[in-house]
Nucleic acid binder design. Structure first.
Lengths: 200, 200
DNA sequence: TGTACATCAGTGAACGCGCGTTCACTGATGTAC
DNA sequence: TGTACATCAGTGAACGCGCGTTCACTGATGTAC
């Protein structure tokens, strides 16, 4: 084990899997998805370039694990917000959506960069489903009947998801300036125009 | 010149600049942005790997030109739609937004992948501004006073831009299935819920 | 409690890859006189 | 109209790069008896 400060470097790392995920998150945040590299991640974790293969198979496997964790953190961030009524709750969770994206740019982008992930990873799928369900219940209520993907009943969920998603991405592109907090203020102006119409 | 069918290969291409842009668009559409390569583009255009440098400087320069053209085509696609009244017009242009994204996936993504483009290219900036202005006038009316980026008066424009943008990206991610037309049907269900509230 | 041994989790050198860009060059074009 | 020459638009070979992955290996761990 490597969990005390006096630990010396041992041949076996002890907790390399989470350490690699953490290193990958740093590399992503610093270099962006396009600049990501498995070798650099291994370097950060203080390990040889071949080591990650033992835990993740290949680069895609590692990125998939990072994305799954990102979806979990994202779901937690939504769930952590609440409000006095349905509209207030949706508004604060909408803001949480935008804030998460801006505070975790590369990870957030990775969550949607399907081409780079293992599409059939069950962990990833489950984490994504959970995040959507949290949002869907926020819009349609905790007791709304489950709905198939194209059910018209989902329209309000899709609409509100679209708006926060689109806004977050535009904000990340700097459409609202690079000034700290400007995007958040723009979101506060804009979300109330729309979200209230989506709660039934 | 190389513009008739019997033309033989000449040392000078004659219209290499547009030919390279067209080749780049094909490479992007086939391989995605991450798979884009300057060499492959040159290969498609039937030209040596060093040739593009004469017209675009480097790979970033070529991609920037492709993105600027994409913004122009995108603006044209919005402008081509109309409606009997402001709400109908906004709705049909919203659908045009979604359709353009789905029909020009890689190009649409490129338009927003700032990290890969020359941020200070005047052509690109101008084409982007024009597209936003077309949208803004659709929402706030042709005679609305111009507004600074963070002016609250822009909120309805930003809201509607966000929703079509977010929806388009989710659709591209396959959230509404890969079934041809499914995304368009979902958009038709959802857009009316929101857009009508944004016209003043 | 001790020992043999299988398994696990790493090493580090080497591979081949396609890439973007540079370079000295050359063929074609256009222009000045 | 002809000619000299500058400029433009290409060539193609070569460069160095960092990458992901493979490979034979070895050190450490855990387990059966």
């Amino acid at each position: 084990m490597n969990d005390d400060l006096n630990s010396v470097k041992t041949y076996h790392h002890g907790a390399l899997k989470p350490a690699l995920i953490a290193a990958a998150e740093k590399v992503l945040e610093e270099r962006g998805i396009d600049g990501f590299s498995l070798r650099e991640t291994a370097r950060r974790a203080g390990v040889s370039p071949a080591a990650p293969a033992h835990h993740f198979g290949d680069a895609r496997g590692l990125l998939t694990a990072v994305a799954a964790k990102a979806y979990r953190d994202f779901g937690d961030a939504l769930e952590a917000e609440d409000g006095d009524n349905a509209i207030a709750r949706l508004r604060s969770r909408g803001m949480a959506y935008v804030r998460f994206a801006l505070a975790n740019r590369a990870r957030f982008q990775l969550m949607w960069r399907k081409a780079v992930l293992n599409a059939d990873d069950p962990d990833l799928a489950e984490a994504g489903r959970r995040a959507f369900n949290i949002h869907d219940k926020t819009v349609r209520g905790a007791n709304a009947p489950p709905a198939a993907p194209l059910d018209p009943a989902l329209a309000p969920s899709i609409a509100s998801w679209s708006i926060v998603h689109g806004f977050a991405l535009l904000a990340m592109d700097g459409v609202f300036g690079t000034d700290e907090g400007a995007a958040e203020r723009a979101a506060e102006q804009m979300l109330p125009l729309v979200l209230q119409h989506l709660i039934v």
